[in-house]
Write a protein that binds this DNA or RNA. Structure first.
Lengths: 393, 393
DNA sequence: CGATTTAATCCATGTTATGGACTTAATATG
DNA sequence: CATATTAAGTCCATAACATGGATTAAATCG
């Protein structure tokens, strides 16, 4: 249900509209903001004042558009005060980053830890240290951490990680294991949002993150699609061939059996090899026949699964990330040809196929970005606290 | 972008919140509305007054909840004034319906016309007559038509029907062919919404409408998912078997080749037969082996395609409609068994499989429902006009 | 240098929701 | 049966916010 608008929430909402517009339109004058939002100059001025005091925007010189008349003072997002903490737990590493309001990455930490071998309690004690180090460092730089989000490799339901098979977790409640408030979300979802906010992706795309499993996050109109229970995007188990090899999910012929990291390495004759992906890349560059064939077949399977995905979800663009990013030169053609052959007759535009620039950082960045996104959409609480405790000019 | 809230739009929005809550909660007192919406009793009272004057709600006796204290007067949606016109053009018929604010169907017209044989201009002249008859009749009953929506069998982009292959249409701009304002949307989308508002479906489901083609409409949280270009839901072309029979879409092994109406009749030995579906039903009831086998294989294919759909879009429930509705007794087991075998290990709850009660009426009803839905969400304009021209008590 | 134009602020006004007081209509209690 | 209690609905003064016109500020144009 849409929420009722009360007097105070009207103010809060308009403040969010103004701040979001500042972000969208880069440096803008108050007058332009008034024009765009439909609010009056008076109202915008008051709000910009509040945002200035809260350290969320700054004035950055004057802005002349060549016309005559008094030039406006440019208002821009300020990266100096508000920041967010992004965290990620994955199979073989932990990572953290601090991102400011302008989506500039301020700090980045990564730590190799084999989380399969350790219990959730151990993993989280490492993560806690990493997070505290990041927060302390950020404080020294004058930043205020507005919140944090944690990415985990598995479906999440309201802070509860029901099962993360690759970590061996069952029913882990994250809030009980950390000493600061944190949001938790699926790694594939956050990677898609990372691509949205930090990558080159437009507002409508399907982000495919190939790891041991294959997940996907769909972004439509700048918002993540989660499905009824938050389990949408399991591209790895889309059926490629109904009588294909059995999958750990209980099905047969799932995409993961053709294009998952394990299947790919096995097909290239690198089953169980340590450092499998780098070695696969070497062989591909050397023109090894087995490796090339493995990629081509994986690409065709991915093309078939993506054909189904396009018919069902109609994404504007498809972004390949995770291990598919370095393999993109070899996957691109088979994927695209398979999709074009199957889609072109029905659609004017087959979705464009691109590669992620972020690689493994996407989820951690997306986690921090989620907090920033929320602050920008609802800056009221931050402004309100800054108001009662006015910051020195 | 979220719109800025101005003083007048605050009022408009809150009015919508109140009316939506009246619909959701059936007969409610003003006090309960205030409690639920978070607005004060005073505000709610004023708004209910406006809605009463506009004829959108009525007071229906007192409402006692067994407690002591003054009983509240129940406020309910009123079906007496505001209504909507739903229209549908399909391959072999036209239909129209008038639905009031309570989603009660007031009028229903259908007309058998072979629209393949006639030009869009002819088709629309029939439709115009049908619509005018419906509107005139509704006026006589004291109803005011708040708007109309038209369902067409093909993808629609902002009033333009780019191609409706089964009608032989190309680039038909609907507004040019009708003499009253109308929204246009895809038949599969509106059928899903019809199921949402008039059927037994909950707020999260995938509605599968099996006709010559197979379309699907996904509803999540009470809203239709349309994808980036409005082309989502083409379940008929999800890949069931990558090397299967060629499809008219250019692909191979699409679901339509296994479970589309034509494929189904062919497999049952009824290829090209007139009245194919009724005859298939007769044979099924008689226990014909070919017919039973055809349904079983179609059901299995549907199960495979739905498995992919569930992994990607995570619907809460799956509703089979169109020709799949009468065939449900024979499709149910193969579909469910296929899905359970492939999904159960990964998901706690395999989506429930149900059948539509609406059948062929779903799209026409959904079209009218869309107008009603919009009026309920934003009653301000209707109230505003009723205000300047006050209705007699 | 004065006229013009646009930006930003100031101030009086208008609209809306708020919150407490009041009226009304029922049940419970003695 | 009268009175207390409780909750619904309305009234009225107030507060919060945005509005819109006037004013001041800072630039360009002629």
């Amino acid at each position: 249900m849409t929420q009722a608008v009360r007097h105070d929430s009207m103010r809060a909402r308009n403040l969010g509209v103004v701040l979001a517009e500042v972000r969208r339109s880069g440096p803008v004058t108050r007058a332009a903001l008034a024009e765009i939002t439909g609010l009056t100059k008076t109202t915008v001025s008051k709000m910009v004042g509040d945002l200035l005091r809260a350290g969320m925007v700054t004035e950055s010189g004057t802005l002349r558009d060549g016309e005559r008349g008094r030039p406006g003072t440019a208002v821009t997002l300020s990266g100096g005060r508000v920041a967010a903490l992004g965290l990620e737990i994955n199979v073989d590493y932990l990572s953290a980053c601090v991102v400011d309001l302008t989506l500039t990455v301020r700090l980045r930490y990564a730590q190799a830890v084999d989380n399969r071998a350790s219990s959730p309690v151990e993993t989280f004690s490492h993560l806690r240290r990493l997070a505290h180090r990041a927060v302390d460092e950020a404080r020294l730089a004058g930043l205020v951490i507005a919140g944090s989000t944690l990415a985990v490799p598995g479906p999440v339901d309201d802070g509860l990680v029901h099962a993360a098979p690759n970590l061996g977790w069952h029913d882990v409640r994250v809030a009980d294991l950390l000493d600061f408030p944190v949001e938790v979300d699926n790694e594939a979802n956050l990677a898609a949002l990372g691509e949205l906010w930090f990558g080159a992706a437009p507002g409508d795309f399907l982000h495919v993150s190939g790891e041991i499993g294959i997940g996907a996050g769909l972004v439509v109109g700048g918002a993540l699609f989660r499905g009824a229970r938050g389990l949408a995007g399991e591209l790895g188990h889309v059926v490629v061939s109904p009588d294909g090899p059995a999958c750990r999910c209980g099905g047969r012929g799932c995409l993961e059996q053709y294009a998952g990291q394990d299947a790919l390495l096995r097909a290239a004759g690198l089953a169980g090899a340590p450092e499998g992906v780098p070695r696969l890349l070497e062989r591909l560059e050397a023109g090894h026949r087995d490796a090339l064939g493995a990629c081509e077949r994986a690409g065709e399977a991915l093309g078939v699964a993506l054909t189904s995905a396009v018919h069902l979800m109609d994404p504007g663009t498809i972004v390949l990330g995770g291990v598919f990013a370095p393999l993109f030169p070899w996957l691109r053609d088979p994927v695209r040809e398979t999709m074009t052959a199957r889609l072109a007759a029905m659609r004017h535009a087959v979705p464009e196929l691109t590669v992620s620039r972020l690689g493994g950082d996407a989820a951690t960045l997306g986690a921090a970005g989620q907090v920033i996104h929320r602050v920008v959409a609802d800056p009221w609480s931050h402004v309100a606290t800054a108001r009662t405790d006015p910051a020195p000019r």
